[in-house]
Amino acid sequence: MRRPLLVAVLTAMLAAASGAALAESLPPLAVSPQAVAIDSLYNGEDLTVTGQVPAGSQVVVRLSGEPRTFRMKEKGRVLGVLWMNTDKVSFSGAPSVFLVAASKDAPAGDVASLGVPGLAKAIKVETHDPDPSALTAEFLRFQKAEKLYLENAGQVTLGPDAGDMRPFSAVLRLPSRLSPGAYSVEVLALRDGAVAASAAASVNASFVGAPAFLADMAFGHGTLYGVLASIIAILGGLVIGQIFSGSKSGAH
């Protein structure tokens, strides 16, 4: 099983990035649904995370996809006037999806460093450009424009303090553009400008029904899939052509 390992690596990576290596762990989280089924009618889904955090703390919830390498092209000016794709650049260690939500009174500065801007530290850039940090900022903007990285991706509601803990409940809206894979959910309890405690859980998204069948065909039997897609398109075109020439024949 790769999932527990992945979650551990991700948590360690993200925790290191946010300087929270010393935070203690929270009681286990309850995530619902525990597995996301992407069927034909999937159009985003609400993910509910509930648990307990230390009394008086604020909460940041993050969902991140597996880190991967994004290969892209940088746009630059050619001959001083034309904007074109120029140098190749790759970003590694960037999550495929990254959603952040925070409770209302969480300090904005802490939320930013735990959120999308904070990712900059974990992302490695490979480029000829003398200024890689500007490129990383550009990459984060790109991912936000693609709606793959989202701040304010849901709501976090805090309950009243009960003893030395307080309950919270978070609803994250998963994007409609979701690929199958393992996603890690993290809850960070903020107190006095630092992460006081954290916990993580994993959610698995997978294709079911028609999407599973089509993806199997497309990736497993590409040529056959292409031939079938062409044949069905031709038949479809013929049928529609027939319907129309039949119904309109009287007009000519």
Binding site: L214, A218, G222, T223, Y225, G226, V227, A229, I232, A233
Partner: peptide, 21 residues
């Protein structure tokens, strides 16, 4: 279509069918 399906796996048949209709 056949080349793209075989080499790059980028043909979405459901999308194509909707556009086609």
């Amino acid at each position: 279509t056949i080349m793209q399906a075989a080499e790059n796996h980028t043909v979405d048949f459901v999308l194509a069918l909707l556009l086609l209709i």
